[in-house]
Design a binder for these strands. Sequence first.
DNA 1: GCGACAG
DNA 2: ATCTTGTCGC
Length: 239
Amino acid sequence: MPRHRFPALHSWKISYAKAKQVQQELFPLVELRDGLHKVNKVAGVDVGFEDKNTVARAAVVILSYPALQTVETTLARRKVQFPYIPGYLSFREIPPILAALSKVEQLPDVILCDGQGYAHPRRFGLACHLGVITGIPSIGVAKTRLVGEHAAVPNRKGAWTPLLDKGETIGAALRTRRDVKPVYVSVGHKLCLTTAIEIVMVCCTNYRLPETTRAAHSLASRSKPSGARSIRPVSSPGC
DNA sequence: GCGACAG
DNA sequence: ATCTTGTCGC
């Protein structure tokens, strides 16, 4: 039984050309000003795939903030109905994410997404799309770059340089730890870049990626159906 | 036409 | 994303 209902801003059964149109139509709804009062809970969302990419598993992990203790987790499985096309990731991952998010008891104050937010060709990446649909402030934290360029990032924890595209700052290349590659942070919805960076840094304790992302990723990838995937297959039956 | 290209 | 063993380093 879904505890939350999110508005259907558009159909998910659309072509790639129509998807581009949806991004352009929803872009104006993105709010770039801080709309945060007090952050008590942050959520990490991630999606994994099985059956030759025909089924998607979305995981939502809610952590207390800034203590980062697990408050609750939810999972959802959905048939995949949109291919992975750079620039259109949200159309592939949001359906299962909404299914998992609707099961949560108490919605988070902020959502950290696995992918870009504003740092997108049309400034409407996964984090923006999810934020506009849910109305929840969101942040995009990607492991690699989609668009934009940036100067070298100083090798110090917390250091960052602006990610630029067509003369505009679209995000930040952030060094979450010393001696690791930077991650790409961009705003999703209802907050500004500096606030996003602050929150991401608080969520990064001992690893390159924020705890929210790590928790959601491990939940999404180890929860295979029938629980038969965590067992290592035997290679030589005759021993 | 030739590269680039979140997960 | 996913398929996969070992291996280098703290």
